[in-house]
């Protein structure tokens, strides 16, 4: 057998594309075994809390010791019970919708 021919033939056989191995859940297993992503140190929460506290303090002093709150409570007490109940239900519905939206977007992000 011609040496060069045999050489070329072997080369071709070896270079023949090796069969693709189906993932078959391999990637999922690897990803599952990865350590949880390192939680990056974020100052967002701290900043938000500080800004809220600062805003509350400013409002307290500007509104003369929170007098507007007492006025609002008096006004609410003088309103019909049915109206107050309806407002409370509406607030609860709006809050639930916002919470559901946030939960759904979180689930989508995780996928």
């Amino acid at each position: 057998m011609d040496e060069q021919l045999q050489e070329d033939w072997l080369e071709a056989q070896l270079r023949q594309e090796t069969p693709y191995i189906d993932d078959d859940g391999f990637t999922a297993r690897v990803v599952q075994s990865l350590p949880a992503p390192a939680r990056r140190r974020s100052f967002r929460e701290t900043i938000l809390i500080c800004v809220t506290l600062l805003a509350s303090m400013v409002t307290y002093f500007v509104s003369d010791g929170g007098r507007f709150l007492i006025t609002a409570v008096y006004r609410l007490a003088s309103m019909p019970v049915l109206f107050v109940g309806l407002v409370a239900i509406c607030c609860a519905l709006v809050l639930s919708a916002v919470a559901a939206g946030a939960a759904l977007s979180n689930v989508r992000e995780q996928r």
């Binding site: 090796t18 069969p19 693709y20 191995i21 993932d23 391999f26 990637t27 690897v30 990803v31 990865l34």
Partner: peptide, 14 residues
């Protein structure tokens, strides 16, 4: 990283 695994799993496992 999962995308990287998907792209290279066949060659590495082979």
């Amino acid at each position: 990283f999962a995308e990287l695994v998907r792209n290279h799993q066949s060659a590495v496992r082979g």
